[in-house]
Amino acid sequence: MSGAADTGRRRMLRRFLAHQGAMVGLALSCGMVVLAAVGPSIAPHDPIAQDLAGRLSPPGAGHWLGQDSLGRDVLSRILVGARVSLSVGVVVVCVSATIGTLVGAIVGLAGGWVDEVAMRLVDVLLAFPGILLAIALGAVLGPGLDHTVLALCVLGWVGYARLVRGQVLALREREFVQAAVALGAGRARIVRKHLIPNLLAPVLVQATFGMASAIVAEASLSFLGLGVVPPTPSWGSMIDDGRLYLEQAPHVAAFPGIAILLTVLGLNFLGDGLRDALDVKGSS
């Protein structure tokens, strides 16, 4: 049994390593994680220090990516902003995946009215398309990093709950689970030994795409003035600041956008590769 599982895992790993898109995504994602980890210590300037004499200066020797409307160093703000963006992404994904997996597993196993009530709640939350609910919550709660995380988690768990519930319903009917039940295995053992190992792959794929969505959502909220509070650097608010000076200083809006694009592209490539390698259907 364990030999067969090892072979399966090795085959998945080989498929993953042979997937060109996955490798590009892995490289981009790892690069961003490293930048977020060391960014604040390698930032050439203080990201909130203003230098009004040099405002809107183009990229040059002293400031590789130029200066913004208050003369702050764009590169330093992108590096520090990476930590903000990735932290929000990680926290939102961890909280959402944990709550969603628990809820999905519980309602999938319980069935009956518990399932009905939970799924109607999910339907209600899904009636708010895109980041509409997060915008509404942001509007009521006011800007702030903690409010942004809360707003994104309120909707974030729903996708995981639906995914896990569907998986649990399908797994319950599979022969190996039926066999375990017939052999007298308890509910806890079935969950631990049979359900959780089979749920990991789809949840992992969903979490990779979810991280990309959370990063874009945080940047969108900050762009709208509902996310991170200035002067803390956020890629979204940097673009909002830069779009007022597109003609004189396009670099202010362009570079943070490229940072978001590379991060999200990397995560989406990685998610696609993981989905193909782990043979997961229906996540995106």
Binding site: A212, V216, A219, S220, F223, G236, I239, D240, G242, R243, L246, E247, P250, A253, A254, P256, G257, I260, L261, V264, L265, N268
Partner: peptide
């Protein structure tokens, strides 16, 4: 799918 619209818009304007 990956390009954020709040960045694409200003870049198209530019």
């Amino acid at each position: 799918v990956s390009v954020p619209n709040f960045w694409l818009g200003p870049m198209l304007i530019l």
